[in-house]
Design a binder for these strands. Structure first.
Lengths: 218, 218, 218, 218
DNA sequence: AATGAATGAGACTTCATTCAT
DNA sequence: CATGAATGAAGTCTCATTCAT
C-alpha cells in the first residue's frame, strides 16, 4: 500500500531517453523520496528506487557515487525545498517582523512540506542521523540558518515591542522544538493531530509570549 | 534486574548458563538497545545483538519469535521504562497538580531517559513507525496514557487557578510536542541544546501559561 | 493440517514418567512416522518428533544415536509391521498355495498398511533410498523375503496346475512392481485410485495368468 | 538446447556471460536434476545447484522466484521431457494401435528416461508429493494425458480385436502401476532388476491380455 | 532417565555494486 | 549514456546435537 500523499504521487514517467544529467539526478532523488516514504530507509533498495524512476538498476551508480551519496543528496534536496518555502515570505519589504515570523511558522505546516510522505522521509533520516554525522551535518546547516533568522526576527519584536526579560534565542529554541515535535505527532497520530492544530498551538504560544503583537487563534 | 544506566556501554557479561527466561529476554533486549544506539535499526543485526549480549547467534530465535518481535519487545520495554519514570512522582498525595505536572515534565529529561543512547533508539523507532503500524500502536498506548494524565492535571490547574479560556487538551498537545521536539534537538545538536535547556524552556512555557502557579526559570 | 489416517491418529499421550526403554523407542518411532506423514522426511525435525511424542527434545539422542539412526529404525519398524501382516496368512496348513498367494496380495492393501499416513512415509523413504545405501539395504531385506516366498508359492501353482512356460520369478517380479506402483497411484490420486482397485487389478492379473485357479473379480 | 544424456555427470560448463534467460533457466534446472540425483531433494541446496551449474549463489533467485519454484519448474521440465518421449511414436499414421501402445510402454524404459539419475529425481519428487499438492498437480497433468491416450488405444484394440469383457480403463490403470512399480524396483535393485526386465514383463502382461495381438517375449 | 536452554554451522534469500554489451 | 545479468557478502532463521541441571 502506498502512503497517500497530499499533492502528488510519483509514478514512473518514462522520461526522454537521453535526459540532461541534472534531470536524471532529480528524477532519482524524487524516486528515493517516494521509496523511503513507502518502504522506509532500510526498506529502500536500489531496485525499488530505479523501479519507481522507471530506469534500470545500474544507473544510480552512474549518476551518484553509491547509495549513501544518493541518500545524502536526497536529504540535501529536501532541506533545500524546505528552505525555499520558509524564505519565500521574507522578501516582502512591507512585512513586519511579526508577519515574517508567523510566515516561517506557517511554512512548516504547508501541505507541500508537512504531509505524510515527506514527514516519513524526514523522520527516516532523523532516525539515522543519531549515529551518522554526515546526516547531522546536512541537517544542522539547514536548521541553523532558520534558527538564526527566527532569532533575529524575535529579537526585533522583543526590542520594538518592549518585551523585556525575554531571550530571543530561547524562544527560537522553543519554536524549533515545537516544529519538530508537532511534525512527529502529526506523523504518528494522523487522525488526531493535524497540521492546522500544530499551527494553531504555535500561534497560541507566540500569542502568549507576544500578547500585544499576536492574537490567540480562538 | 540488571539494566538501565545512563552512560555505561554494554559489554558481554557472561551470565549463568541457565538463567531464568525472563532474564535472558531482558539481557537480549538490553543488547538490542545498545546495538540500535550504536548502529541504528537498519544496522542492527542478530549477530551484533548476540555479540553484545555475549551469547550465540541462534538464541534470539529461541527466546523471541523473530527479529521483528525482538524489536517490538524492545520498544515496549523502553516505553515501560519511560512510564515508570513519569509515574513515580504522581503517587505522593501531598503534591499539588502543578508539582505533579512539573514532575512529568522533568521525568522526560531525567538522565536515565534522556541520554544519547536511549534517544537514538527512540528516534530509530520513530523513523520506522511512520510505515509500521505495529510500532505506532505500541507508541500510542504509551503516549495516550501520559497525555491524558497531563490533560487531567492541567484541567485541575485551570479550574483551581481560574485560568479561564485555556483548553487543557491543547496545552497537553503542546507539551507532547515540546517533549519530542526538544529530545530530537538534544539528539541532533548535543553540545548546543541540552536536557536542562529543554526542561527550562518547558518550565518557561508553563510559567507563561500559568503565571500565578509556575515561575520562570531565570 | 493433518493428513487423515485410516485407523489411528497419533497424539502426545503422556506416558509413564519412567517407561521401559523399549517403550520409549517405540513411542519415538511412532512419533517419527506421524511426523514424516505430516511434514515429510525433510520437514521432520527432532523438535516435531519429540513434540508429537510429548517428550523433550534431548531425549532422542539418548535412546537413539542420532536422527539418522532414528530414521533407519523407523524404516525397519515399518518393514517389520508389513512383514507381520503378509506372514499372518501363511501359517494355516489348510490353505492352498493359491490362497496363500492371494493372502500376500491382500495384505498389501490392508487398511493398516495401505493408508495415506503409512504410504507417505514409505515413499518418503523411497525418495531417500535412491542415494542412501543404508535405506536400500533395509528395504531389500524386507522385499527379498517376500519375493522369495511369493516365487515359491507361484512355482507350486505352476507345477501343480500345469501352467507350463511360465517363470515364477518373472511373475513374482511383476507382483512386486504392481504392489509398489499401485501404492504410488493410491497415494498420488486418492479419490481416483483406491486400495480396492489395486487389489482387484492384481487379482485380475493373476486370474489371467492362472485361469484355472483364480477367477476374475467381475 | 543443451541437455539430456543417459550417463554423463554434469559439470560446470562456463556458458557465455550473457546468455539468453531461457538458457540460464535450463542450465539451472539441469543442475538441479543433477544435484537431486546426487544428494536427494533434502540434500539439494542452492549452493550445490549453483556450484554444479558453475554460477554464483545469488543467481537462482534472479531467474526463479525461490527454491520452491525452481523445484516445481524442474519437475515440470522432467514431465515435459517424458511426454516428448512417449508422444514421439504416436504420430506415425501407419502404426497400429498395438504398435502405438507398445511404443508408449517402451518409451518409459528408454535410457534417456529410465536411468538412475532421472529415476532418483522422480522418486525424490514422489516422496515430497504426498504432502505437497503443488507437486501432485504437476504430476497428475503429466499422468492423466498419458493414461487417457493409453486407454483410448487399448479401447481400440479391445473393439477391433474382439476382446470382450475387458475394460480399457482397468488395463490402463494396471499399466500405470507397472510403470511406476518397475521403475522403483529398477532404482532400488539396480543389478537385479533392469529396464529390459521391466519392458519384458509388461509385454508379457499385455501378451497375456491380448494374445492374438501381442506375443510373449520368450 | 529426562529436560530444554544453548550452541553454531549452514540454509535460503536479499541486495549494492560491477561490467559486458 | 544506459541496461540488467551476474556476483558474492551478509542477513535472518532453522535445527541437530550437547550438556548442566
Amino acid at each position: 500500500m502506498v502512503i497517500s500523499n497530499t499533492h502528488s504521487s510519483w509514478e514512473a514517467k518514462s522520461p526522454p531517453r537521453t535526459a540532461p544529467p541534472e534531470m536524471r539526478r532529480a528524477q532519482l532523488i524524487e524516486a528515493t523520496i517516494e521509496s523511503i516514504s513507502r518502504y522506509g530507509i532500510a526498506g529502500t533498495t536500489m531496485k525499488k528506487v530505479t523501479g519507481i524512476a522507471g530506469l534500470s538498476m545500474g544507473i544510480v551508480n552512474f549518476h551518484f557515487q553509491n547509495k549513501e551519496t544518493l541518500f545524502q543528496e536526497t536529504l540535501r534536496y529536501l532541506g533545500q525545498e524546505h528552505r525555499n518555502h520558509w524564505r519565500k515570505g521574507l522578501k516582502d519589504q512591507r512585512l513586519t517582523p511579526t508577519d515574517k515570523l508567523l510566515g516561517i511558522v506557517d511554512a512548516h505546516f504547508h501541505p507541500d512540506i508537512c504531509n505524510r510522505r515527506k514527514l516519513t522521509v524526514w523522520f527516516g533520516f532523523y532516525g539515522e542521523a543519531a549515529y551518522r554525522a554526515a546526516y547531522r551535518k546536512i541537517m544542522s546547516e539547514i536548521d541553523n540558518e532558520r534558527w538564526e533568522m527566527s532569532a533575529e526576527l524575535i529579537d526585533q519584536i522583543i526590542k520594538d515591542g518592549g518585551y523585556e526579560g525575554l531571550a530571543a534565542e530561547e524562544i527560537s529554541d522553543t519554536l524549533e522544538g515545537l516544529y519538530d515535535g508537532f511534525c512527529l505527532n502529526i506523523l504518528m497520530y494522523p487522525g488526531t493531530f493535524t497540521p492546522s492544530d500544530a499551527r494553531e498551538r504555535i500561534h497560541d504560544y507566540l500569542a502568549g509570549t507576544f500578547p500585544r503583537h499576536i492574537q490567540r487563534t480562538s
